[in-house]
Simulated scan of single mutants.
Amino acid sequence: MKTSTEFALTRRQVLGFGLMLGGAAALNLVPGYQLVAAAQAAVPPAAQKIADHFSSVKSMSGEFVQFGPKGEQTGGKFFLERPGKIRFNYDGSSNFRVISDGKSVVILNKKLNTSDLYPLSKTPLKLLLDDRIDLSGGRVKAVKQEDDLTTIKLSDKSVFGNATITMMFDPKTYELRQWTITDAQGKDTTVMIFNVKEGGNFPADTFAIDYTANRELNTRTR
């Protein structure tokens, strides 16, 4: 897939995959959302149905387009296997890769010869990849139901600070359409997915992270 604009990805621009840790800035809720207080309201039935359906999808693949905080655009192909595993192969000369093996997330830029490693448990991406999408414990911050989209905003301040993930689903098929990561500074990165195929098996090395290579590379570049 060709994108209209190709740009050099940075750590901030891969926020679409939840790789920035939380900070002190307050988050802004999108107008029009139904706020859900953990101790005062149950999770809306529509949101629970969507979460249950999405949790039942154990693997999927397709294409994506990512929009950065300043409107930057790129794209590529993705592969997901629950729990915890995902891979994004970006188009472009940087040969960018983002891979989660269920424990860690690595950002690879072969052009710049960099490899940055993060714990999956400290990113909003964890909420997307859990074996079960957990809406309990006050994680649901807002729900918006429209004819063509159901939007669910999730956060877990104890895990990744003030970052949030907002997921948009088809209200009829419950299929995931896109998600937005809002970082602690209030900057958004949106990922839209399409040509999605649910199910399927992937080669064993699809989600493999070479920890030895990561350690050696970062030792040499210090």
Score class of each variant (00 low, 15 high):
Asn113Asp: 15
Gly92Phe: 03
Ala42Arg: 00
Ile86Val: 15
Gly76Ser: 13
Ile99Thr: 15
Tyr33Ile: 01
Leu80His: 02
Asn95Leu: 10
Asp101Ala: 07
Pro124Asn: 11
Ser94Gln: 15
Ser93Ala: 14
Lys110Gly: 14
Val14Glu: 04
Phe79Glu: 12
Ser61His: 12
Pro83Ile: 05
Gly84Lys: 04
Asp130Thr: 11
Val36Met: 01
Ala38His: 05
Leu21Asp: 13
Val98Ala: 10
Gly68Phe: 05
Val105Asn: 00
Val30Gly: 03
Tyr90Gly: 06
Ser94Gly: 14
Val30Lys: 09
Pro69His: 09
Val106Tyr: 02
Lys70Ile: 09
Ala24Phe: 08
Ser121Cys: 06
Lys122Asp: 15
Thr74Trp: 05
Arg82Lys: 15
Asp134Cys: 01
Asn89Trp: 02
Asn28Trp: 00
Ile99Pro: 01
Ser115Pro: 00
Lys49Met: 09
Lys85Leu: 12
Lys85Glu: 08
Asn109Trp: 05
Met60Asp: 02
Asn109Ile: 12
Leu117Tyr: 05
Lys58Ala: 10
Leu128Arg: 04
Ala24Met: 13
Phe54Tyr: 15
His53Asp: 10
Gln40Tyr: 04
Pro124Arg: 04
Gln48Leu: 14
Ala46Glu: 14
Phe96Tyr: 10
Gly76Val: 12
Val43Ser: 00
Ala24Gln: 12
Asn89Lys: 10
Pro45Phe: 02
Ser61Ala: 13
Gly102Val: 09
Lys85Thr: 03
Val65Glu: 14
Tyr118Glu: 12
Val65Trp: 07
Lys49Gly: 07
Ser93Leu: 13
Asp101Gln: 04
Lys111Ala: 15
Glu72Val: 11
Asn28Phe: 00
Phe67Asn: 06
Tyr90Asp: 04
Asn89Gln: 12
Ser115Val: 04
Ala51Tyr: 00
Arg82Asp: 07
Leu80Gln: 08
Ile133Glu: 01
Ala47Asp: 04
Pro83Asn: 08
Val30His: 03
Leu27Pro: 00
Gly75Asp: 12
Gly62Cys: 12
Ala26Val: 04
Thr74Asp: 15
Val14Ala: 08
Leu125Gly: 00
Arg82Val: 02
Ala26Ser: 09
Ala42Ser: 15
Pro45Thr: 11
Ala41Asn: 04
Gly84Trp: 00
Pro31Gln: 05
Lys111Pro: 02
Ala51Pro: 01
Ile107Asp: 04
Val57Met: 12
Ser55Arg: 06
Leu128Ala: 08
Lys126Val: 03
Val14Phe: 08
Phe64Ser: 06
Val105Glu: 10
Pro124Lys: 01
Leu80Val: 13
Phe17Gly: 04
Leu135Gly: 05
Ala37Gly: 02
Gly75Val: 11
Lys77Gly: 07
Leu80Met: 15
Gly22Ala: 08
Pro124Phe: 04
Ser104Trp: 10
Phe54Val: 10
Glu63Asn: 13
Leu127Ile: 05
Gly75Lys: 07
Leu19Glu: 02
Gly102His: 02
Pro45His: 11
Ser56Ile: 06
Gln40Glu: 14
Leu125Gln: 02
Val30Leu: 07
Val106Gln: 03
Gln40Arg: 08
Lys126Phe: 07
Ile133Val: 15
Asn89Cys: 08
Gly16Tyr: 07
Leu21Thr: 09
Asp131Lys: 12
